[in-house]
Amino acid sequence: MKQKIREWLRRYLLAEVLSVGATLAGAGLVWHLAPNQDLRAALAGTWAGNVAYFGWLLGQDVQLARRTLRAQGRPYTRRSLGRNLRALVVEFGPAELLDSLLIRPALLYWLPRWTGSRAGGVLLAKFAADVTFYIPAIISYELSKKRLRNFGD
């Protein structure tokens, strides 16, 4: 189990750190430009965090696939990119739909109000939403590894 936890931390931790920064920046920018736009700030924080998170993971997946294919003397093609994208959709699709369309924006809207702290509420919302996000995401990741992430075939 320790090995699995290390693997998940290697996969998700840096993406999560980037996502936290982007979530705070996205929501903070909206609040700076339009102070009473809590809903817009919640949506901006959600989507900024998603771009940072999934951009980093896709970049990591592409880099790993390129390295694997290069070692076999094969090129990285559009089909390879499609396979990387499909693997991300399988890994995150169900978790991400619920997370981005309902859970995370709702928490990013309400927790800053309830806590009385914009930054504290955003961080609390981010971490609370991550709990409901990672359980299905990790299960999907484990199920997709052999079929969609094996570029050795």
Rank of each mutant, 00 (worst) to 15 (best):
I138H: 02
P136I: 05
Q3C: 13
L123P: 00
T68R: 13
W47E: 11
V122E: 03
L43I: 14
V89A: 07
S100M: 14
L39R: 12
R40Q: 11
W114E: 15
V122M: 12
I138G: 03
T132Y: 08
V30G: 10
A95E: 09
Q72F: 15
R66A: 04
L64Y: 12
L69P: 06
L29Q: 07
A48M: 10
R113D: 00
G55L: 11
H32V: 01
L98F: 05
R118S: 03
A119T: 05
T77N: 12
L57Q: 14
Y134M: 07
N36F: 10
G26D: 10
S117H: 07
E142V: 15
H32C: 06
D99V: 09
W31G: 00
E7W: 10
A95K: 06
N36D: 14
V122Y: 08
L9R: 06
Y141F: 13
P75Y: 05
D130L: 10
K145R: 15
F151S: 11
A48N: 10
V131K: 10
L81S: 14
A15N: 11
D130H: 08
G93N: 06
L24P: 12
L14N: 09
W47D: 03
F133H: 01
A22L: 13
T115R: 02
A44W: 02
E7Q: 14
V20Y: 04
T77Q: 13
L102I: 15
A129P: 03
